[in-house]
Design a protein around this nucleic acid. Structure first.
Lengths: 182, 182
DNA sequence: TTACTCATGTAACAAGTTACATGATTTA
DNA sequence: TAAATCATGTAACTTGTTACATGAGTAA
C-alpha cells in the first residue's frame, strides 16, 4: 500500500489488505482478532494471517482511512473495526483489477511439476501416488468444509476444489501417458 | 532457509531458492543473470525474480554449499554457478515435500471470487465479461508459449493452462446458474 | 560511436514470519 | 479456580520489492 501524497491516497492494496477489507465488508464489524482467526483457518499454507502482519495491515488501513475503529466499553481494549466508504471503493478497485485477478499467483505445485519428471525413477511412482492420495484427501476435506461455509467462502472453496481436481487430472494424464508408452 | 547448526544443514528452502536450484540442475551451468532472466519471463505476476532477491538467494545457497561458483577469465567478473550434490539432495527434498506441493498457494482469483458476487449488479456482468476475455487471451498466450518451451517448462505451462481453464469453467458455471434462475 | 545486452551487485524499503508479552473474560 | 479463549500488540528476523550504480562486450 502506498502512502498518502498530501492530497489523495493512491492505495495499491496488498492481497492481505484486500482480504481484510473484504472480511469487514461482508461480515460486518469485527475485532482484529476475529479477522485474523478467519485467515488462520483458511485452506492455504502460504496464508498464515500472523498477528504481526494483520495488526500492522490494520494500522496502515486505518491511517489511510479505509477502515475505522470504535473502542468498546471494555477493560481489555476491544476495538470493533468497520470499513469506510473510501475503504469500500478501494476494495472494489482491488477486486476488479482484472490483470491481478487472473494472475496465476504463487503455485507450489506448478513450480515443482517440472522437477518431478527428472527425479530418480525409482521413487517417482511412489511420489505420484502420494501426491494423488494427498490431493484426494484435500478435496474431500474441502467438500466437507463447503457445507459449513457462508456464501462468500463457498466461491473460494469451490475454486480450491477445482484447482486440486485439475492438479489431480494432470497427474492422472501423466500416468496414462506413461502407461501407453510402455 | 535455515542456517547451519554446526554439524549439518537443515535447509527449508524458500520457493525462490528451490526454483534457483532446479534451474541450475536442469539447465546446467548458468550465470546469476541468466537464472534471473528466466524468472523474469515467467508467466506469474507474483514472481518477479528481482535482482535483490536472486543475488541474495544465491549468496545464501552458496554459503550453505548447495551451489558453487567458478570465476571466468573475464573482465566483467562473470561467475558460472552449478549445483552441488548436497544441493541436488536439498532440491529433491524440497520438490518431494507433498504437503507444500499440494498447498493451494496464494491465488488472487480465489481471494477475490467471493467479493464479485456482492459487487454492484450494474457492473458485475461487465466484470465477468472482462475476466473471461482476459482468461481466454491468457490461455492462448500460454498455448503459444508452450510450443517454444523445453521439457521442464512444458509441465508448468500445461498446469497454468489447466488453472486458467478451470477458472474460466467456474465463471461460466456462474453465468449458467444466473441464467437458469431468471 | 551509440545503443543494447550481459553481468555484477547494493541501498532503502515493504510486508510478511515466528515467538513472545500482557491481561480480560468465559467456561468446565 | 484452573484452563481455555478473546483480545491487544511488539521485537527480531526473513525475504521479498524497486530503483539505482557500475562496467564489459557486442551489434548497428
Amino acid at each position: 500500500m502506498q502512502a498518502t501524497n498530501g492530497e489523495e491516497t493512491i492505495p495499491a492494496l496488498s492481497e492481505l489488505e484486500g482480504a481484510i477489507l473484504s472480511e469487514l465488508r461482508h461480515r460486518g464489524r469485527q475485532t482484529a482478532f476475529k479477522v485474523r482467526r478467519s485467515f488462520a483457518t483458511s485452506p492455504s499454507l502460504e496464508w498464515r494471517g500472523s498477528a504481526g502482519s494483520v495488526y500492522a495491515a490494520i494500522r496502515r488501513l486505518e491511517l489511510a482511512r479505509l477502515i475505522e475503529g470504535e473502542e468498546q466499553a471494555d477493560r481489555r481494549g476491544t476495538r470493533l473495526l468497520r470499513i469506510t466508504e473510501q475503504g469500500s471503493a478501494a476494495m472494489a478497485a482491488w477486486a476488479c483489477d482484472v490483470t491481478r485477478a487472473i494472475s496465476v499467483g504463487v503455485d507450489p505445485f506448478r513450480l515443482r511439476s517440472g522437477i518431478w519428471d527428472a527425479i530418480d525413477p525409482a521413487i517417482r511412482p511412489g511420489l505420484y501416488e502420494q501426491l494423488q492420495a494427498a490431493l484426494i484427501r484435500d478435496i474431500e476435506a474441502l467438500k466437507g468444509h463447503r457445507r459449513y461455509g457462508d456464501v462468500i467462502e463457498t466461491a473460494s472453496v469451490d475454486l480450491a476444489i477445482r484447482l486440486q481436481q485439475s492438479r489431480l487430472d494432470w497427474l492422472r494424464s501423466l500416468s496414462a501417458r506413461g502407461l501407453s508408452e510402455r
